[in-house]
Amino acid sequence: MGEGTDEETREETPRVRRRGRTALLIATAAVLGLVGGTCAGYLIQADREPTRLPSLSQPVVAQAKGAGPEPLSAAQDRRVKTDGDLRKLLIKRPKGTQEAEYAPGHDGWLTMAEYADQLEDPDEAFGSLVGAEFRRSAGVDWQVGSTYNVGIRLVQYRQEEKLSASEQAGNWNVDGTRSWPIPGTGDGMAYVTTKPDTEPGYEPVYSAQAHAWRGDIAMEIWIYDTKPIPKAKIMDLAERQMERL
């Protein structure tokens, strides 16, 4: 606090009050002047002849040709595709293959729980999908013989708070693999294992996978076989699937 005397403090207060009182007087005068001017205007207008109002009917102005953009066709508007039946964006199961014996989901659709159940830690994956604003998922699976299996998933996110499709497509820890970028996808990647996964009592299993995204949809492809999987197989599936998005 300052060291001013009580007398100095008492001198400050009236100065503030005077400014407030002066402002009040100015405001009152302005209001009185406004009222007086308004009254005088009414008196002058009362002595004049009434002015005819313009007709309410106005001429119609023709819209300029070509002024607005043409609406997008269904082929051009990506929202028409991605908000429709997600299963129609999946590549078809090749002829000569058979449906996978243990394909998850129902009629091509997977709930969030069914999709999470395929992953390494379903409980943790389920919580992650909730935070990522999971919307829906569709898939197709097939197999050749008893050892060659393919699974493709399209996972769509709401993306109201974050760009989850791109985050989820890049959120894969792939060790012991060779990798290549998927053409036309920006940061999409394909991976092929260099060594098989082995467990006692089971045949060795090789795998390949691909991950990419477009808009609000993340794509993933998995291939499993008991012999090494050529790069060409996973790249072909990835490129054809991304062309449909």
Rank of each mutant, 00 (worst) to 15 (best):
Q118Y: 03
P54A: 06
D6Q: 08
T226R: 05
Q58D: 04
L110W: 04
E99S: 14
L163Y: 10
E167T: 14
D175H: 10
T28R: 02
T177S: 15
M112H: 01
D197I: 12
K81Y: 10
Q159V: 08
W222E: 11
S146R: 14
A103S: 09
W172P: 00
P230M: 02
S207V: 00
P59S: 11
H211S: 05
I26L: 15
A27L: 15
R19I: 10
A210H: 04
T177H: 11
Q118A: 11
A75Y: 08
E203Q: 13
Q143I: 01
D117F: 01
R87P: 03
N171L: 09
T9L: 13
K162P: 00
R78P: 00
A46G: 04
S179P: 02
K227C: 00
S166P: 03
R52P: 11
E3G: 03
D107N: 15
S166R: 12
N171T: 01
T185H: 07
D6L: 14
G20P: 04
E199G: 03
R93V: 13
G188W: 04
G184A: 07
D6C: 01
L72G: 11
E120N: 07
I44D: 13
D197F: 13
R19M: 12
T147K: 13
L86S: 06
A212N: 03
R48E: 13
L86I: 07
V35D: 00
R18S: 14
E160I: 02
M242H: 09
E124P: 00
L237E: 02
T226F: 01
R78L: 11
K81D: 11
G20W: 04
P69M: 11
G4H: 09
P204T: 06
E161P: 00
Y102L: 12
G2V: 06
A165G: 05
E161K: 15
R21W: 12
Q143D: 02
V144Q: 13
G66C: 09
P14Y: 12
A23E: 12
V60P: 02
L245I: 11
P200D: 15
R21I: 12
Y115R: 11
L163G: 08
E160Q: 14
W142S: 05
T22W: 06
A40Y: 09
E3T: 12
N149Q: 14
L24K: 10
L163F: 09
W222I: 04
I229F: 04
Y115V: 00
Q143H: 07
Q241I: 02
A62G: 07
E124L: 10
F134Y: 15
G170Q: 11
P200M: 07
E167P: 01
T111E: 05
T97Q: 10
Y42S: 03
Y157M: 08
D83I: 03
R244A: 02
D6R: 05
G84T: 10
R136W: 01
E11R: 15
E49L: 11
L34D: 03
Q156D: 10
E7I: 12
V155F: 02
M219G: 03
T147L: 05
E160N: 15
I217K: 00
R19S: 10
L245E: 02
R79M: 12
L154V: 01
Q45Y: 12
P50T: 07
A132D: 06
N173F: 09
L154E: 02
D6V: 13
S73I: 07
A100D: 07
D117K: 10
